[in-house]
Design a binder for these strands. Sequence first.
RNA 1: GCCCCGCUAGCUCAGUGGAUAGAGCAUCUGUCUUCUAAACAGAGGGUCUGAGGUUCGAAUCCUCAGCGGGGCACCA
Length: 546
Amino acid sequence: MTSVISGGVRERINDALHQAVRALGVEEDIPDLELGRAKVPEHGDYASSAGLKLARVLRSRPDEIAARLAEKVVVPEGAATAEAEKGYVNFRLTDDWLRQLVTRIAPGYGGRDIGRGERLQVEFGSVNPTGPLHIGHGRGVTLGDSLCRLLEFTGHSVQREYYVNSDNTQTRRFGASVYARLHGNEPPEGGYTGDYVTELAEMARHDLPGIDKVPEEEAEPKLRMYAIEKMVERIRATVARLSVRYDEWYYENKLWEAGLPQTAIDRLRKSGHIKERDGALWFGEPNDEEEDRVVIRANGQPTYFASDLGYLLSRFEQRGFNRVIEVWASDHHGYVPRMKSAAAALGFDPQKLVIILHQMVNLKEGKMSKRAGRFVTLDELVDRVGSDAVRYFYLLRSPDTTIEFDLELAVTQGSENPVYYAQYAHARLSNVEVAAAERHPRLPERADASLLGHPWELDVARQLAFWPDVVEDATAVLEPHRIPYYVHDLATAVHRFYHAGNAQSEHRVVVDDPELTRARLELCRAARHTLKTALELMGVSAPERM
RNA sequence: GCCCCGCUAGCUCAGUGGAUAGAGCAUCUGUCUUCUAAACAGAGGGUCUGAGGUUCGAAUCCUCAGCGGGGCACCA
């Protein structure tokens, strides 16, 4: 994409509007002029309430200010015209500029160097490796992956990490459960009862000869690591089916081998954040016991929190990430303040630790319980619904909303599934390009976009103009769910455009006139590239045929 | 008791303090000898949970209340 519009037309208009405000003699800070998409067509494409915003500063009537601004504002390239109405300044993208835009769109359109190569880590999906992923985990995994895709698309240097717990209470119980099954016993209280635990025990009996002769104290850590390894393999396979990629599977025991938790504790002891009480070590603010949390238990065993202290060092210091984004399920929300204060106590900017919480996923049939071994696994979901639909389904919702997973609906393959709507638009565009090549073996190399003029053609171009705004906003607030909503809007414009040719053949893309065909083909290509890019950010495939 | 999230059309959900609140599904009515009908055009459907407040303006911000979900361990 050329630099001319890389920032998006909205930003261009906003800059122009600010210039106009300065020209009116406003010296001080200009308030946010609320430039956004207009909600009704009569108001154009973008609208600003600049007149209302500046009324106080300029001590003048909003409608007068808006009128003066509309007169003064000059949008570069003639991309938009301005019109005042009451206190608002409305902008309408010009047809000529929309036509130009179409010829400029190349693969990767909308991408932009917002991050300037910022080194950041996104840690997501880090479930205790004590069982297969279930439907709830699928949400964190797909959200995290799409977030990474988005951040990479906007110029960040992203490292994707899965933190593998291996030394905590849950994984020990897991090891003990495998040990119990190995000896034909029931798992201990609070252990894991799923059939897969028995299977793991049998596999261990085969892979670790003589393990059943070893006393528990010695056998459990071996069985635990063996079982964790098997579960991690399974988790890797599951997420791979969803096109979720990780750069690093970071094991908790690696922290201890590097002595990072101990280093962190020593440092915190010096600053008064680590205190000894009741035989245990606690973390908290100096001279305040209120929020204290145990780091090392009275029995000498560390809690997960000790590992997490070391994990902060590993990331902010040892590995030098500027920012760390964690994706957690909301049932961990109580842990957020503790992690933030730990980061601050260790000398890091807590703002650089960004924690994204997503709400839970419920099945309509009833609650899930991992330890009871009675759940619908993510694998089963992918088997039944398919990766594309699963990803689309998860990403469609804001992280703040609880998903009520209606399996019955998700399983039905048909037009009610929004993913097909978007993919079909892409397939149609791909197909029409093939048809054009057959009909016109030698089309003009360059498209004359001025031949585009029908409202449905310009509406496609208009949607394309909005794409950089969507990318920018989604990145700013770290909300990938804005993408599928955009995809839907673009697909709608594409289907309308295409359908015009079904209703009247002279409106088809492929017509007798090679010049006209070429121009419409250019629009198809621009839309196809953009659709494909957006779908890629979601991890959803863009088929060329359906 | 304290903390977090939600409450918007029949259902599932979008909606950066701006003008007349949107989409999908479902329901109903039309459109295929055609570059793919997995599509298009149209219709109906709303006290944005309630009450106060902030201001030129509130679904959006604040307070209180209600309902639903999730947390509040020497589990993670």
